[in-house]
Nucleic acid binder design. Structure first.
Length: 255
DNA sequence: ATGGTGGCGCGGCCA
């Protein structure tokens, strides 16, 4: 069973890439972020045609998340319970025995900004939510665009990025606190190529020069992590015409 | 090199 995440930066533009990718890779579950479209515009028919069920929580211009799944998704919930936020950044669903929580963590813009404060506050709310979800589900995956590079080896130039948004200590501590609730980074279970990243700025030929960050993650509860057999970044779609600035990440599980 | 690119939507915000 394969579970994947991909920040598509507009599903309207990236739909052909997504359809090709699911046909080629056949994930059981694919979580999308930054769909950037209202629910009325969501390309549900095209996705169903490719053999996937889909649930989505959209908004105009910004944010928007969706979960594609081979099997029916049940107990679907959009947002963080009790946190009434118009920004569509979270969606949970149960597929088979696995609870999936798809997140698009706020970017934070700049350390010290209002958006940065919002990001840190948001991560505390997410942590409380995940704690509750872990109490109810043995097999849980928290995956998506976290907008945080966990350590310096997830950064192409740690000196340049030191203390900057996506790499600052408060953000890393917030991510660690989330992990400490009972999660594991599936990517780091395995030997990986050095300089493995998931996002590259569109500017300054960052992808060609591999000047990226690893900010998209698949975090697993202990019992799911034990069954994790592989985890990879697929740089293929980032090489296509009009790519997303993020590459998909996919983990494979026993059973 | 204090910029650069891309999406949305048509000026400026956001990443």
């Amino acid at each position: 069973m394969k579970i994947a995440t991909w920040n598509v930066n507009s599903l309207r533009v990236r739909l052909p890439h997504v359809l090709d990718w699911v046909v080629d890779n056949q994930p059981e579950i694919l979580c999308l972020q930054e769909t950037k479209m209202v629910n009325e515009d969501f390309p549900e028919a095209e996705i169903r045609q490719a053999g996937y069920n889909v649930v989505y929580s959209g908004q105009k211009t910004y944010n928007g998340v969706a979960i594609l799944s081979r099997m029916h998704a049940r107990d679907v919930f959009a947002g963080i319970p009790g946190n009434d936020d118009p920004q569509r950044r979270v969606m949970a669903a149960t597929v088979g025995k696995v609870r999936v929580v798809n997140v698009y963590v706020p970017n934070g813009q700049e350390v010290g900004s209002e958006k940065y404060r919002y990001k840190l506050d948001w991560l505390v709310k997410l942590e409380e939510y995940i704690q509750t979800e872990l109490g109810e589900h043995q097999e849980l995956a928290l995956l998506g665009d976290f907008n945080i590079a966990p350590t310096d080896r997830d950064v192409h130039d740690p000196v340049l990025w030191r203390g900057k948004v996506l790499c600052s200590e408060p953000e890393r501590k917030a991510l660690q606190a989330l992990v400490d609730v009972g999660l594991n980074d599936s990517f780091r279970k395995f030997e990986q190529e050095p300089e493995s990243f998931t996002w590259w700025d569109y500017r300054a030929a960052a992808f060609r020069r591999n000047r990226g960050l690893r900010i998209d993650h698949i975090l697993c509860s202990d019992s799911l992590y034990t069954r994790c057999l592989a985890c990879h970044v697929d740089k293929g779609p980032r090489k296509l015409e009009r790519p997303s600035d993020h590459a998909p990440v996919m983990a494979e599980f026993e059973g």
